[in-house]
C-alpha cells in the first residue's frame, strides 16, 4: 500500500527524536490508508501474516496495549500479550534476561512499555527483531505523537503554522516530549502551560514557549492538548490539591475561550474529569478525543508495516 512514497528507513521505532519530517510524513500517509481499511467491514490485511508480535508491557496499560494488539491482528500477525503481572520480572529476572528469553522465541516485532526512561533502547540493543517503544518512563511515546499528528492533520488539513498548546504535567509526560519533537518537526509552534513545579528544567531550550498561565498560553491556540495528572502528584508534592489545579489549569469552557474560536481539544487519555479537563469540554464539539483513539490503531498499523519491510524474509 505504499506506491511511490518515501519509506521509513529504520529497524526500530524508539522515539520521534532522530526522525526527519519526511519519515514522519511517510508514516502519516500510510496511516491514512489504514484509517480507510479500518472503516471497512473486512479489515484484514496480510502484511504481517506468519509474523509474531509480542506486546511486552512492564507498566499496566489498557488503551495502548489493545491498540497495538488490534493493529497487529488487522495486519495478520500472531499477537501475544505479556504483562508484568504474569512475567518472570516479578520473580527477579532482569530486563536483559527477559530480552534474551524472548529473543530465543524468535519474535519479529516486540512492542515495549517500561517505567524507566531508556529501558526500551537498552532492550532493543539485545534482541534481533524490531522494537517499538510504547512508552519509556518520562522519555518518549512515539506512536502517541504520531497519532496526535495524524488527528490534527485530518482535523485542520495541515500542521505547519498551527499553534499547539500542551497543558499540564509536562515534567512526567513522555507524551509531551514526543509531541514537542514531532510537532516542531512538522512546523507547528508549540507552547507549554503548567505550574513551574511540573515543567522540566530548561524546557524552553526545546524551542517552545513556556507560560505558567492558561490565559497567555492559550491565546491564539489552534490545538489545546491536555495531559493527564497522576493522582499521587496532586496532593501537595507538585501541586497543592485537585481543586486548586482545576482552578488554574483545568480546561473548562472559560479557559477554552482564551484559545481561537475553532480551537480543538485533545487528550491522550485516560482523562481525569474535573482535574485537568471539565466533562463538558471533554465531550464537547471541539473535542478530538475519540478521533485520537481511532487514529491510534491506524498509526500503529502504519508503524508495524514500515518495520515489517526491514524484517528478514528468508
Amino acid at each position: 500500500m505504499n506506491g511511490g512514497r518515501s519509506q521509513y528507513p529504520y529497524r526500530h521505532l524508539l522515539g520521534i527524536e532522530g526522525l526527519s519530517r519526511l519519515d514522519i510524513q511517510a508514516l502519516l500517509d500510510t496511516a491514512e490508508d489504514y484509517v480507510a481499511l479500518s472503516r471497512q467491514v473486512e479489515k484484514k490485511a496480510a502484511t504481517l501474516r506468519g509474523r509474531t508480535q509480542i506486546n511486552l508491557f512492564f507498566e499496566p496499560s489498557t488503551r495502548t496495549q489493545s491498540s497495538f494488539e488490534i493493529a497487529g491482528k488487522r495486519l495478520g500477525a500472531d499477537v501475544m500479550n505479556m504483562s508484568v503481572s504474569s512475567s518472570s520480572v516479578k520473580k527477579g529476572e532482569t530486563l536483559l534476561d527477559t530480552a534474551a528469553t524472548l529473543n530465543a522465541m524468535r519474535p519479529d516485532i516486540i512492542i515495549v512499555r517500561h517505567h524507566a526512561a531508556g529501558a526500551v533502547n537498552l532492550l532493543a540493543r539485545k534482541v534481533d527483531c524490531s522494537v517499538v517503544n510504547a512508552g519509556d518512563g518520562a522519555h518518549e511515546h512515539p506512536t502517541q505523537a504520531l497519532l496526535d499528528a495524524l488527528t490534527i492533520r485530518r482535523a485542520k488539513g495541515r500542521i505547519e503554522g498551527l499553534v499547539v498548546t500542551i497543558c499540564g504535567d509536562i515534567l512526567h509526560s513522555r507524551v509531551a516530549r514526543s509531541n514537542i519533537i514531532c510537532l516542531a518537526a512538522l512546523g507547528a509552534f508549540v507552547r507549554l502551560v503548567g505550574p513551574s513545579t511540573l515543567l522540566p528544567s530548561e524546557v524552553e531550550r526545546f524551542g517552545v514557549e513556556v507560560s505558567p498561565d492558561m490565559r497567555t498560553g492559550l491565546a491564539g491556540a489552534d490545538i489545546v492538548m491536555m495531559l493527564r495528572l497522576q493522582r499521587e502528584r496532586m496532593s501537595g508534592a507538585f501541586v497543592p490539591s485537585i481543586r486548586e489545579y482545576f482552578r488554574y489549569f483545568g480546561l473548562d469552557r472559560e479557559k477554552l475561550s482564551f484559545a481561537k474560536p475553532d480551537a480543538l481539544v485533545m487528550h491522550p487519555g485516560p482523562m481525569n474529569r474535573g482535574v485537568e479537563i471539565a466533562s463538558d469540554v471533554a465531550d464537547g464539539t471541539q473535542s478530538l478525543v475519540r478521533e485520537q483513539v481511532e487514529m491510534g490503531v491506524a498509526v500503529r498499523m502504519a508503524v508495524l508495516e514500515a518495520l515489517a519491510r526491514h524484517l528478514p524474509n528468508e
Binding site: R243, R247, Y248
Partner: peptide, 15 residues
C-alpha cells in the same frame, strides 16, 4: 505554606 504545618505537602497557595 505546608498543610497542617507538617512540612510534607504544600498548601493551596493560589486559593
Amino acid at each position: 505554606l505546608t498543610k497542617g504545618l507538617a512540612g510534607r505537602e504544600m498548601t493551596e497557595i493560589g486559593l
